[in-house]
Amino acid sequence: MLSRIAESYFWLGRYVERAEATVRLLSEHHQLLIEDQSVPDGLGCAALLESLSMPTIDVQTPRALVRAVVGSELDPSTIAGAVSAARANARAIRESLSQDTFEALNSAHLALSRGVAFAASPGVALHGVLERLLVVNGVIDWVMPRDEAYHFLVLGRELERIDMVGRILAIRHDLLWPSSGPAAALRAAGALSAYLRTGHPITGAEVRRFLVLDPAFPRSMRCCAADAEEAVRGLQRQGVSDSSLLLREVGMLRSELEYARLSPADDVSAFIDESREAARRAADEATRSFFRQHGTIVWSH
């Protein structure tokens, strides 16, 4: 498989995940700011923007927050930018992608460009975008053969997921909104009902532990690392060139999370940053081993 094509799958996986997770996070955060007025809006907005590595200036209201995070096509850390980047990658591999995937991405793109940010109810409009992105992932899971392309896409998706869970936890909902914050963090990760079934109390520390270490919830960092490792093993079975460094990176992360030496009272915070760092190293390693053997070349005379 061409390295460029593999890279497009990888980034398609990443950007779809980024868009979906950011929509969910923004939607919940907007709701939280409206419902729980204990924190000044400016501070509440800044908490989300900082976790997304976005500038906080001039964003003082929930509405302005929605506008900033929906963002523009030009900035891939915003929702519109991530969808647009996902679409650009999908276009490059359109030949091998099912038409449904492309159409679902396209309609998410259109919905965003029609101005979610200015909708009467941002929550409702964001939900519409979320649904389309769920369709994209659904179609991918239903129709894509489990070949090299699929493994690259899943690898990208899982590494991005680890990063996004890290961003949700970086907001520290429990400190800012002690009563409603931890549940909002769970909702932002789509984890509330899964969590409730465990019977644990909804506290900041317990929620963090769940989102990092839970062995069954598919968006916990631990499960994402396991899926990423499985994707790399899948690539090896397909006979890609040397991937041992990449496998070591994701395998170590998975085993650290799986066999974490922790007493029930210990805090998992240290794992969060380490896991995000490991995910970043894995992405660099994937780029180095598969996508750009020779660096991006600019020719001079």
Partner: peptide, 10 residues
Amino acid sequence: LKGIYAGGQS
């Protein structure tokens, strides 16, 4: 002598 190369200034 003429040529092209990948990278900064020469």
